[in-house]
Design a protein around this nucleic acid. Structure first.
Length: 834
RNA sequence: GGGCAAUUAGCUCAGUUGGUUAGAGCGCUACCUCGACACGGUAGAGGUCACAAGUUCGAAUCUUGUAUUGCCCACCA
């Protein structure tokens, strides 16, 4: 074919748009359920749309996975790559409330849901646009949202299935509670913060009026004290066992008991148990069947049980109680301590315990099974598995899935007020909202005349998010979905490390319960994109550094506009799997350089290939000059290495090898050597020139293929411009991953002579300040040990002249070492070039 | 307090199963506008591989300990 002349100043934006149109039109990213190709299905995080503040870190983590997906597609897999959007939960609820100034009590859930869906669709659009402009090869027909009918149906089916398997129970127990949002929380919703607190030594008394000193940071819980404990092996207090302790300020007597959990060394070795200060209190309360005297209400105020402190906020009550204790002489010591407090991850308010009837999924009984599943799963990188194991080991509570919120997936059930019976929805009716929908007919018949009330709590968001593989596989069996359970278990889960304890764990647990299998075979854990200081990129970074044109260096759109999507993608592959990546704008710029360089390589190759016809003019590899054979061999090695890396999801090492090869071996060495074959007055034969064309043609095709997963746009454009290299594909991205040519390269030593000569000449030129391109009069060679080397050097004379860009070779006296034993060189410039 | 990871050039990072003189990019110095590319090329300066001990003929690499950083976990009330 006649290769076109490529523009020297390529417009990357135009190229990217052109590619996107091609990909959309040809639907090459779509999942094909009929395909016989091996399946590669990906479970990727549904981003939280309402809290959208997109930054380079998002672009990074999604791109890292997508590079793998592009590779797998080229390896001949049938790709299932859906994108979901998470619009469930508190942030959406608050956003919609504020935006529409809604009083939730005056609206119905379905109306509110409609608004949420509307808002989140807007957010989803922003994401979709970004993902598209980044070149993510998502099948957009597979889009889902965590509040759509499919997801609600799946979540409710999950509830029914767990119920039927006896894995659910409803209990009125102390639960972790967020007093700010007034809702229950699960263990995974907690965070720990460090803060300074005061520890008070407070005097209780035994029945004889002898002091019993306990240490506490929470004196406001004293009215809720229901017992005092010491370690059974603590001799100091053994005579107290079975006695009573008098609680200061309050006219209460509580039993004195023992517990192994008490640390004798801590404080006086005595501790109070309150309903409820922490999980340990709950445990002691349960084990010893202690009284219940709740002093903190769900809204974070003191209850009636707190006597005169009733109605005060917790912190306020603490202050007052401390003052009163001091005045009455009950405080015998105090000190400032560093304390770790569990807080709700959204409210950052310390969690309390309250008693509310809640639904729980039984987790604690299944720890061993989860650990086994964690082992079965293949982790990339492997050390991330430990994080899940530790989390499972440390689980203390069953999973509370009830949330006292307005918005979310409703529980599919009603209660019978008179009997307390639970009426479950029929699966055929899902999704339902018990507030708005009628209970099943059988229930209405059975409980005729009784009061049936809906469950008003909603399922917590992870209850839905934990089902993404089953949502995607249409486990719910809804009409109109392209894919079914044939994609299950999925091949790969992609996510960041901070949600191992939530998303990963819950998804695994659910899959285990519902299907008795893992939800996916492999998991790939990404790190975070960090700012230059190594901190999380914050909303503040995005606001603070935005200039008057709306440009912000952390904003993916800004970066794409300035450097191109391929450049940003290339940057994303900089960090090793699972590692964080510090953002530096210049690194994105480096990506752009590679894109432009590759474009220019194509220009060069096109120019020299002219109207090369690969079908009729290709020279057999073994008949080509040593440089050509060497290059093809180097590409073979590179290909083998990259393929091996990709199979381990190691996009970073694959990229690095490719980068190094491209810049040094290909551009600096090979192209510089091969160029002269096309110049006038060369000693190269016509066949050698055809060899060069053959090699340029083949190597450019290979390069474009190897670069394709990283920089899909520019590679596609080159591929198309090159007439697809005569292949029958609509796109480079559905072409076959380059195959290795298994010829044997046997001229490595010859090539060393050429390369070492080239390097020596460069060094000499630099030392003598002769331009690298300037023609030389003579290349002087001195072969000191004769024999084979001399034969080799003579055989390679044309190559050596090319390497030196000299007019003639002179065998004489030279004293610049080449690094080849016995070969020294010198150069003689033309007289007019001094 | 426990765990996981990291610590290599001024900065960001590679360094494959232990094997000559530890690499790249950016930045820096000097030179080169030569027929793809100055978003380029060539040469160069710059590192006691966090520290200490050990294993070994040989350690950035393996072992142990220490320090620092990041993340995760934890009931010291």
């Amino acid at each position: 074919m006649k290769f076109p002349e490529l523009d020297s100043g390529v417009d990357l934006t135009e190229v990217e748009e052109k590619c996107r149109t091609l990909w959309d039109d040809t639907k090459i990213h779509d999942y094909n359920p009929e395909s016989k190709k091996p399946l590669f299905s990906v479970d990727t995080p549904p981003p939280y749309v309402s809290a959208a503040h997109l930054h380079a870190g998002h672009a990074m983590s999604y791109t890292q996975a997508e590079i793998i997906i592009r590779y797998k597609r080229m390896q001949g897999h049938n790709i299932f790559y859906p994108m979901g959007f998470d619009d469930n939960g508190l942030p959406t609820e608050r956003y919609v409330e504020q935006k529409y100034k809604i009083n939730k009590k005056k609206t119905t859930r379905s109306e509110f849901r409609a608004l949420c869906i509307e808002e989140t669709q807007k957010g989803a659009k922003t994401y979709e646009e970004l993902w598209r402009s980044l070149g993510l090869s998502v099948d957009w027909d597979l889009k889902y949202s965590t509040i759509d009918d499919l997801s609600r149906h799946t979540a409710q089916k999950s509830f029914l299935d767990l119920h039927s398997k006896g894995l659910l129970y409803r209990a009125n127990e102390p639960v972790l509670w967020d007093t700010h949002f007034e809702t229950a929380l699960a263990q995974a919703d907690l965070e720990t913060i460090s803060r300074k607190g005061k520890m008070y030594d407070i005097r209780f008394e035994d029945s004889d009026g002898n002091p019993l000193i306990i240490s506490t940071t929470r004196p406001e819980l004293i009215p809720g004290c229901v017992g005092m404990f010491f370690n059974p092996s603590d001799q100091r207090y053994s005579k107290l066992e079975g006695g009573k302790a008098k609680v200061p300020l309050f006219d209460i007597e509580v039993p004195i008991l023992t517990s192994d959990e008490v640390d004798q060394e801590f404080g006086t070795g005595l501790m109070m148990c309150c309903t409820f200060g922490d999980g340990e209190d709950v445990k002691k309360w349960k084990e010893n069947k202690l009284e219940t005297r709740l002093v903190i209400s769900p809204d974070g105020k003191m209850t009636e049980a707190a006597g005169k402190y009733e109605g005060m906020q917790i912190a306020e009550a603490r202050k007052h109680i401390v003052t009163d204790l001091q005045e009455a002489g009950f405080i015998v010591g105090e000190k400032t301590v560093e304390q770790n407090v569990s807080v709700g991850e959204r409210s950052e308010v310390p969690v309390e315990f309250v008693m509310e009837p809640q639904w729980f999924i039984n987790l604690l009984k299944h720890k061993d099974e989860f650990l086994k599943r964690a082992d079965e799963l293949e982790w990339f990188p492997a050390h991330m598995k430990v994080r899940l194991q530790h989390w499972v080991d440390g689980l203390k509570y069953d999973w509370n899935i009830s949330r006292q919120r307005f918005y979310g997936v409703p529980f599919p059930l009603w209660y019978v007020e008179e009997t307390g019976d639970v009426i479950l929805a029929d699966e055929a009716d899902l999704p339902i909202d018990p507030i708005e929908d009628e209970p099943p007919q059988w229930a209405k018949d059975k409980y005729k005349g009784m009061t049936i009330v809906p469950e008003t709590d909603v399922l917590e968001t992870w209850m839905t998010s934990s089902l993404t593989p089953l949502i995607n596989a249409n486990w719910a069996g809804r009409e109109g979905r392209k894919a079914g359970m044939e994609i299950y278990p999925m091949t790969l889960r992609v996510q960041a490390f901070e949600i191992i304890r939530t998303w990963l764990f819950y998804t695994m647990a659910k899959s285990h319960f519902h299907t008795g299998s893992l939800p996916w075979k492999n998991v790939m854990i990404s790190g975070w994109g960090l700012n230059e200081q190594g901190k999380k990129i914050s909303k503040r970074d995005l606001e603070k550094f935005t200039d008057e044109n709306g440009y912000n260096r952390y904003d993916p759109y800004s970066l794409i506009k300035k450097y191109g999507a391929d450049a940003l993608r290339y940057w994303a592959a900089n960090s090793q799997l699972g590692r964080d990546l510090r953002f530096h704008e210049k690194d994105v710029k480096d990506g752009r350089k590679v894109v432009i360089k590759l474009w220019n390589v194509a220009r060069l190759a096109f120019m020299y290939m002219e109207d090369f016809d690969a079908n009729t003019q290709t020279v057999p590899v073994h008949e080509r000059p040593v440089e050509d054979q060497w290059l093809l061999n180097e590409i073979n090695k590179l290909n083998a290495k990259m393929t091996e890396c990709f199979e381990k999801y190691d996009y970073a090492t694959a990229k690095e090898s490719l980068h190094k090869f491209f810049w040094i071996t290909y551009c600096d060495d090979y192209l510089e050597l091969v160029k002269t074959r096309f110049w006038e007055n060369t000693n190269w034969s016509e066949k050698d020139i055809l060899s060069a064309k053959s090699t340029l043609y083949e190597s450019l095709r290979l390069l474009v293929g190897l670069f394709a997963p990283f920089i899909p746009h520019v590679t596609e454009e080159i591929y198309q411009q090159a007439g697809k290299f005569g292949e029958d594909n609509v796109s480079l991205h559905v072409s076959k991953w380059p195959e290795r040519n298994d010829f044997k390269f046997e001229l490595a030593e010859d090539m060393q002579v050429i390369l070492k000569t080239l390097y020596a000449v460069r060094k000499l030129r630099s030392e003598r300040q002769i331009g690298q391109g300037a023609r030389l009069d003579k290349l002087v060679l001195q072969v000191s040990n004769g024999g084979d080397l001399e034969t080799t050097v003579k055989k390679l004379d044309t190559s050596l002249l090319s390497a030196a860009r000299a007019d003639q070779i002179d065998f004489g006296s030279a004293n610049v070492e080449t690094g080849i034993d016995g070969l020294a060189i010198d150069i003689v410039p033309h007289k007019d070039v001094s």
